[in-house]
């Protein structure tokens, strides 16, 4: 079953990527905000990555949502699952593209809504998140979303698994 094209929360609308997302996404990718994701990245890589997001939806039937302000439609970031490697669970992201939008719980609100959808509507058992060990803000969100750290052998990257089925039963 495919994921919903659109999810709505109190403050946000999550939707599939669109061409107009490229410039704000590119600004994020080329900024210091991707320092924990191997960035800053080039414009070329930013284009490929947004194309990856869009193509993933076609390949898998789910993918990264673009998180937009429910009132204005302004794109704020991206959130949702991505899976290029079948040997680990779908991998989550929750990124805000501008520092100005931090501090109001928007990333967590977006990620929590995608997890609710994956659990309640798609019946997924588990997702994971790979996070740089110095990215304290993102690690905090992973824990708030019910993530537990699992052994992972990949340099400075930590892995958190978020069990969805257990949360549903609790």
């Amino acid at each position: 079953m495919n994921a919903a094209d659109t999810l709505t929360t109190h403050r946000l609308i999550l939707r599939r990527p669109e061409p107009a997302d490229f410039e704000p996404f590119c600004a994020f990718m080329m900024s210091d905000r991707t320092r924990f994701l191997g960035g800053p990245k080039s414009r070329r890589i930013a284009f490929d990555r947004l194309a990856n997001f869009a193509g993933h939806w076609v390949m898998r039937g789910y993918g990264r949502y673009i998180v937009t302000d429910r009132a204005t439609g302004r794109p704020l970031g991206h959130a949702g699952a991505f899976q290029h490697d079948d040997t680990i669970p779908p991998e989550m992201a929750w990124s805000l593209w501008s520092a100005d939008d931090e501090g109001r719980g928007l990333a967590r609100e977006a990620a929590a809504e995608t997890l609710r959808h994956y659990r309640a509507d798609l019946g997924w058992p588990v997702v994971c998140a790979r996070i740089h060990r110095d990215n304290a803000g993102s690690i905090a969100i992973a824990r708030q979303l019910g993530g537990t750290q699992v052994p992972h052998d990949e340099g400075d990257t930590l892995r958190f698994d978020i069990a969805l089925a257990q949360r549903g039963a609790a």
């Binding site: 061409p19 194309a51 193509g55 290029h84």
Partner: peptide, 20 residues
Amino acid sequence: TPYETWMLYAAEIGHWQIRG
């Protein structure tokens, strides 16, 4: 690599949606 190949194929599809 397998990762690069998968990402390139997704980008081939996504290119349609970004460029038309």
